[in-house]
Design a binder for these strands. Structure first.
Lengths: 231, 231
DNA sequence: ATTACTATCTCACGAGTAC
DNA sequence: TGTACTCGTGAGATAGTAA
């Protein structure tokens, strides 16, 4: 009989809003029922149960009834509220990709070294990437799904260009971390890869700096803004 | 089908704690059931219903299932959490007394002018009260109950003393406001009043300053600490 | 007008179990 | 191991109504 029942939470919150913490406030079960979108009878039962469990006190003066929340009721609300608050605050704000290093250079290696791209990398990323991209084969569905959801987050957009002979597509860059090393996950407008491959670029040679070789398992973390509008 | 059901709140909070906001996290319905103190079947149903309403997404890889919270689910949790939080923050932190001015001076008038008390008032309240206390007859049960609950809150304690002939009891002072005028509600160790009478003291003549006369209705507000341990 | 009783209904939950 | 079905039970909600 000690724990606050889930269905009483909103009722108790409504009583707080009505100012019933320190003073007895007059209240009717029908108005309370309306506030919590339940029937008058439900509100009446809630009050009876809250009282039976020591979360509120009631005072009757003839027809009128006043309600006050007890310290126990106050403490219980604080508990619930902080549980919810802390569960919301415990969110790690990044997308995680797990995979293994794929053999060879990525298909983007050649293109990424073109002036039309490197000039933009320099201004937008702050560096010209090591010539050669790192291919990562994603291991699980979760990571492949994470790749799909990247679309919804802000990226650094490197525009496509033309060299007179042909045109080159845009590149979306997502700053990321691999073993605490700064890298960028890149999505190409035109790619031959399927969904299970991603490419990384970095200022230095990632394989060397992170001591990775073909087949190594890696985890990539892409920070995402808390204000995103995914879905 | 749009509103988050109350009984799903804790389940969703648990998913947040498990990090399921941005990434799909593998989870079993039985472990989730344990976390929310419900059965495996209940957890399974919660997930199905949360998914049906667009609060979570699920990903199946054979036997394993991963769960991710959608933006809609995130928004709904924020909504609930802030409703609870704001209901807790909306608490007016004072005890309210409603009553009418009682005729004549309070019984404390004479005693309160004694040096043994006035010296303490000067140091503890910061002033020597106007000679004469104001009696207030409380109107309703709520106010009488508020008077009883004063006991639990911090007061300025004016100690009793002896003048050789007899002893005088302590006086508890609660700083308060009447029509925005600073007063103090006093509780006497020895009183002839019943529970429905309270006495007020103030630096100046309250009746004059607040333009009150016998029979006037007044409201007294006594601020209380948020950290109290009433009940 | 109130509150709260009784009866009824719905649905949340857990047991058992199929897959 | 897993998930999720059916079904029985009872808690929670509402309707009707007494006081």
């Amino acid at each position: 009989m000690s724990e606050l029942k889930i269905q009483h939470i909103l009722t108790l919150a409504e009583l707080f809003t009505k100012g019933a913490r320190y003073n007895f406030v007059p209240i009717t079960t029908s108005s309370l029922g309306k506030s919590i979108r339940k029937s008058q009878q439900a509100a009446s039962k809630h009050l009876m149960e809250l009282e039976a469990n020591g979360y509120v006190e009631r005072l009757r003066s003839g027809r009128k009834v006043s309600v006050r929340i007890t310290t126990k009721g106050h403490a219980e609300m604080i508990k619930i509220s902080s549980v919810l608050k802390s569960s919301l605050e415990s969110i790690p704000a990044y997308l995680e990709f797990k995979g293994t290093i794929s053999s060879g250079m990525g298909e983007g290696a050649y293109y990424m070294s073109m002036k039309g791209y490197t000039k933009q990398f320099k201004t937008k990323l702050g560096y010209i990437p090591f010539p050669g991209t790192l291919n990562v084969k994603l291991k699980d569905k979760e990571s492949i799904e994470a790749k799909r959801s990247l679309d919804a987050y802000d990226a650094i957009m490197v525009d496509g260009f033309s060299d007179g002979k042909r045109t080159y597509g845009w590149v979306k860059c997502y700053p990321a971390k691999v073993n605490n090393i700064d890298v960028a996950l890149i999505l190409l407008e035109r790619t031959h890869h399927d969904d299970s491959i991603i490419e990384l670029i970095s200022k230095a040679n990632i394989k060397k700096v992170a001591k990775l070789s073909t087949g190594s398992k890696i985890t990539i973390r892409v920070p995402v803004s808390m204000k995103s509008n995914r879905d």
